[in-house]
Design a protein around this nucleic acid. Structure first.
Lengths: 337, 337
DNA sequence: GTGAAAGCGCTAACAG
DNA sequence: CTGTTAGCGCTTTCAC
């Protein structure tokens, strides 16, 4: 492992000069720079992040806390984060909360071990004690996705998103509308499901439409659970709604499968709308309110990076992320309209 | 930021004693240990990985190279890796290859920067030059998923998996069998698709069954692409096969959706089998050859960790990962049997 | 333009 | 059982 001093010796220079040359600092003669770079290249010199981190306090890594990587949404966000960080020569250090049963969730200080220069937290709401610890380490921290108290956040206005989706259905003439929502056991982001469900109920109420309990399904934010919930409704012999709002596209996909298998024509008999803008949505022809998780990841990364150089200390809020109603072929007027 | 020396001073001890006490090394009086731990706890002491890494050469991090995190399979593997590493107090440093266009793929040494103690590579086959660089850094390295030349690997025998799936169809009496395969543009793992497709063709040949070109569909290892390919076959008016082998469950889901939309009854008219054991498979009732990506991740992590303490230098091979045919309701005898 | 020296926070012999 | 002494490989004043 060749190190700074090896290069210095070989060239009869001092460590400092070599260090400066390598980092392109001013005040080094072009000839020296070239010589140093040449030897470094030839000897396959790799700077030690640990050593420079020790002196500068910068570790060129950002911690990313994820409820579960196997969720499409989170994986997309992380992808975006990684892409943005890579450009700045920063790495992602992952903390998957789905790992250890859950009780290990408490923000053990040692999780960080002064390894990361900042933190991005996906849809995870910390307890007061955890926040205090976070605060103590003093890392620039931002949330992505679900509301995260005590820190700025990149994410859509979940209430507005659901209002948009619900109004789309109402605008098409629907009055008998069901919801496929529920809580996300693995996703941990308890607030997003709540906000989304509440927004649905509120919007219906505003329009003078009653919610019907038998049309409020629990899809657990998962394909399989949503499909089964739909299967049950179908099998129950209950009257069907003319439209279903699914609070995630994965659930919408499950619902579509169930409907199709039962021979129900979408959207002629039942309309279905999702939320998120999942990869599958286009192929499914799914109408959805689309957001851009990858871009949100990039934005969060940019924010953290910005606060690293700035180092100001005030964590200002960021504007809400954009979303867009994308109308495809799973929504239409209610039957008999 | 309190450091070792602060604790030492406060207790009138030396740094080494404190260090030993904190790490539970032998030869320190219980009283001292307790005192040290107490102060450390109270002052919120966080050891600096950079500093210890600098002396020990251990950074308590493993690099994970992923073609694309948004693939369910890879995300699952990474989840498993993270879980296993967490138990050993190791972190995952992510390198998402889907980030920078692709040409940055060359294994830039600086990617590692002596930050990680080992490397886990998912389904990425490196060029000779990249391998050489890898070798030069001398990190214990293992692959997961698709074959990776020049290093041991955790993964199923893809040939055998496809043979199992194909024989299942043949065993049910099918003679008119199609394949939904193709290449995975984003996944980068060029060899797995090849092996799987070849195994299919071979197995049919062995059974004296001809492959029909119009039944060889390109699904791109994606839901949407597979669905569209199926849609096209359906629209073409071609005779349909009585069974379809999809080389990934995501593609199988797309095919099922297309079939269902066309009013074709599965498995009465067409049987469908997938590969992988995706989360969705159960809800879809999809027959599949299941593997355990998460466990594979754990195994790979365990292997790397083992070689960290062992430090032997020889990288022995690991046994192939298990897989299992899970028969559900999308496969059955061909029509008219 | 370049060098010398100090030190980041820890671990690892080597002494006692 | 505990302290002393060297570094690990780099960056950073402060000199020249």
């Amino acid at each position: 492992m060749t190190s700074l001093i090896d290069i210095a010796r070989e060239l009869g220079l001092s460590k400092s000069t070599v260090s400066r040359a390598l980092r392109g600092m001013p005040g080094i003669s072009p000839a020296t720079v070239e010589a140093v770079r040449g030897v470094a290249e030839r000897d396959g010199y790799i700077p030690s992040l640990a050593a420079s981190g020790l002196t500068t306090g910068r570790h060129h890594a950002i911690g990313v806390v994820v409820p579960s990587l196997r969720r499409w949404f989170y994986a997309s966000v992380v992808s975006g984060i990684d892409a943005a960080l890579a450009e700045a020569n920063y790495d992602v250090v992952l903390f998957d909360l789905s790992r250890g049963g859950g009780e290990e969730r408490l923000f053990h200080r040692s999780l960080l071990r002064r390894r990361v220069d900042g933190l991005i937290v996906l849809s995870t709401d910390f307890a007061a004690e955890e926040l205090r610890q976070l605060d103590e380490v003093g890392l620039p921290t931002i949330g992505v996705g679900g509301p995260t108290h005590g820190m700025p956040r990149v994410g859509v206005d979940d209430h507005a998103v659901v209002v948009t989706a619900t109004r789309h259905l109402i605008g098409l003439g629907h009055r008998r509308i069901g919801l496929v929502g529920g809580v996300d056991a693995e996703g941990l982001n308890s607030t997003v499901p709540q906000i989304r469900s509440a927004a649905f109920v509120d919007t219906l109420a505003e329009a003078g439409i009653d919610v019907r309990d038998e049309w409020m399904l629990s899809g657990g934010y998962r394909f399989g659970v949503a499909k089964q919930a739909m299967d049950r409704l179908l099998a129950s012999g209950e009257e069907l709604p003319t439209a279903l709002l699914c609070t995630s596209d994965e659930m919408a996909a499950g619902v579509l499968f169930a409907l199709q298998a039962a021979g129900i024509v979408v959207p002629d008999e039942v309309s279905v709308i999702g939320i998120d803008g999942h990869d599958y949505a286009e192929a499914l022809g799914l109408t959805t309110v689309q957001q851009e998780p990858e871009q949100q990841g990039r934005d969060a990364a940019g924010w953290v990076l910005g606060h690293l150089v700035g180092g100001s200390g005030d964590w200002p809020d960021v504007p809400p992320a954009p979303y867009e109603l994308v109308v495809r072929s799973t929504t239409g007027a209610p039957p008999g309209d």
